[in-house]
Computed example of a mutant assay.
Amino acid sequence: MADNADMKIRFTKMQGAGNDFIVLDETRGSLGLNRAHYRFLADRRYGIGADQILSVRPATRLDTDFAYAIHNADGGEVEHCGNGARCFVRYVLEQGLTGKDTIAVEVKRGTIVLLARQDGLVTVDMGIPVFDAAVLPFHPEALSRRQQQQATLWQLDLSAAGLAPVEAVLLSMGNPHAVLLVPDTRTAQVEAIGRAVQALPAFPASVNVGFLQVLGRDHARLRVYERGVGETLACGTGACAAVVAGHQLGLFDSRVQVDALGGTLHIDWEGDGSRVMMTGPATTVFHGEIDLPEFPVLPTDMNHTA
């Protein structure tokens, strides 16, 4: 950290289908940020404002081009972000950090491959969905379940929050997701149910909660209540998880348009053992500099333990 009270850092603000990000260049060295710094940057009143912060870093392996870290608005590091991955590609190309159209990137749980298309959209190889409870992680003890087509629907007891039980398909897209079918996303109790599901002891690392409305075999609406953020305008891994869950339930074909609050994503998945491909927009909003306090404290941090 700098010797004086503040240090000035450069950033780029980006968005993908309304899911917004602060992107930091750490390819020439670490900025040395801690959880309080990430909270400060993401705060929409005292900082810049974003759902997540993406830190671009040098690759650590010969078969990859970059690595990057993802921090939520609460300062916690997470495993994966599909909308962030698309913004990552646009960023490294616009900043001249690479001339490649296809880029291999290290994330917390492996490697993802990203393709910048000529039409301005970005396609991300999101990997193979995982249903293993240990990977999510998920503790299924004492929970009832039923099978529908190829999917397992787990019943989640939300009585502690004064809510009716819900059924969810659980899977990992590099990060944990619980997908709930709803008749209409516009009237779904996204915050109340999202908070209640995340608080369940069955999810020791919490979970992203998706509210999926099926409009047809190739069309869906989706809202997502994300870990450490709350509801976002879009969630790339959430869209992938929703399509996989709907496909397993026998509701979707292999290509689905997913309409989020902030925009549209296209998800392709052929079924078990195949990789999920996500295509969508990535846009640079503005570049800037900010004076970052060495020990930033927000009013909301007074009763917050990191």
Results as ranks from 00 to 15, higher is better:
58 P>W: 01
188 A>G: 07
273 G>D: 11
302 M>F: 13
253 D>H: 13
306 A>F: 14
302 M>W: 14
294 E>G: 12
74 D>P: 13
127 G>Q: 05
191 E>I: 13
167 E>Q: 00
256 V>G: 01
205 A>C: 12
13 K>W: 10
158 L>C: 04
268 D>P: 01
194 G>W: 08
134 A>W: 08
111 T>N: 11
264 T>H: 08
188 A>M: 14
82 G>I: 06
57 R>K: 15
121 L>Y: 00
258 V>Y: 08
6 D>P: 09
76 G>I: 08
67 A>M: 05
223 R>A: 00
80 H>P: 03
265 L>T: 01
17 A>K: 05
59 A>P: 14
63 D>F: 13
17 A>Y: 00
231 E>D: 07
240 C>D: 00
78 V>L: 11
53 I>A: 02
137 P>D: 15
192 A>N: 09
221 R>Y: 13
52 Q>C: 02
65 D>N: 15
2 A>L: 12
88 F>P: 02
10 R>D: 09
181 L>P: 05
70 I>D: 02
171 L>C: 06
240 C>K: 05
165 P>K: 05
81 C>R: 10
261 L>N: 07
170 L>V: 03
139 H>P: 03
245 A>P: 02
120 G>Y: 03
252 F>Y: 13
94 E>D: 10
273 G>R: 12
263 G>Q: 00
84 G>V: 06
75 G>I: 11
39 R>I: 07
219 H>W: 00
158 L>A: 06
162 G>L: 12
187 T>G: 06
272 D>W: 11
120 G>K: 04
299 P>E: 04
55 S>Y: 06
152 T>G: 00
56 V>Y: 02
16 G>L: 11
235 C>W: 04
281 P>E: 07
244 V>S: 07
131 F>A: 10
30 S>P: 12
132 D>H: 04
164 A>V: 03
161 A>D: 12
103 I>H: 14
226 E>H: 11
286 F>K: 01
218 D>V: 00
86 R>N: 00
139 H>S: 15
147 Q>K: 14
12 T>A: 10
288 G>V: 02
247 H>W: 15
290 I>P: 03
40 F>C: 01
188 A>F: 08
43 D>K: 06
219 H>G: 01
288 G>Y: 01
147 Q>A: 08
205 A>N: 09
49 G>D: 09
183 P>R: 03
105 V>K: 08
290 I>S: 01
176 P>H: 05
1 M>W: 12
188 A>H: 10
63 D>T: 07
249 L>P: 12
115 L>S: 01
300 T>Q: 15
87 C>K: 01
74 D>Q: 06
166 V>T: 02
226 E>G: 08
175 N>M: 07
153 L>S: 00
78 V>N: 04
186 R>F: 01
178 A>M: 15
32 G>T: 14
228 G>T: 13
117 R>V: 13
271 G>W: 13
7 M>G: 03
262 G>Y: 09
22 I>R: 14
292 L>C: 09
230 G>R: 15
33 L>E: 05
114 L>F: 09
159 S>D: 06
204 P>V: 07
224 V>M: 04
151 A>S: 04
86 R>F: 15
213 Q>L: 04
172 S>H: 05
65 D>W: 12
258 V>D: 00
131 F>C: 10
278 M>H: 02
22 I>W: 11
